[in-house]
Amino acid sequence: MNNRIKIYRTEHGLTQEELAVALGVTRQTILAIEKGKYDPSLELAFKISRYFGVTMEEIFLYEDEDRS
């Protein structure tokens, strides 16, 4: 699953640390999500989308294996 967290984060002028503190997770978790190494839970995904004031679909891009 791809995501656009890094784009939204830089648009908001936030560092990974600042975003992590705001979401109550570690900086490493933000890094892992941005790199696509870790898929966040539904709860964290909601937190991220609400933090940036957008829908989840705008941040998380699910590419169906059949389509790709």
């Binding site: 109550g24 997770v25 570690t26 490493q28 978790t29 892992a32 870790y38 966040p40 839970s41 709860e43 964290l44």
Partner: peptide, 9 residues
């Protein structure tokens, strides 16, 4: 201090 979901996993 922070034990988040990724660490738990």
């Amino acid at each position: 201090v922070i034990i988040d979901e990724r660490l738990v996993l």
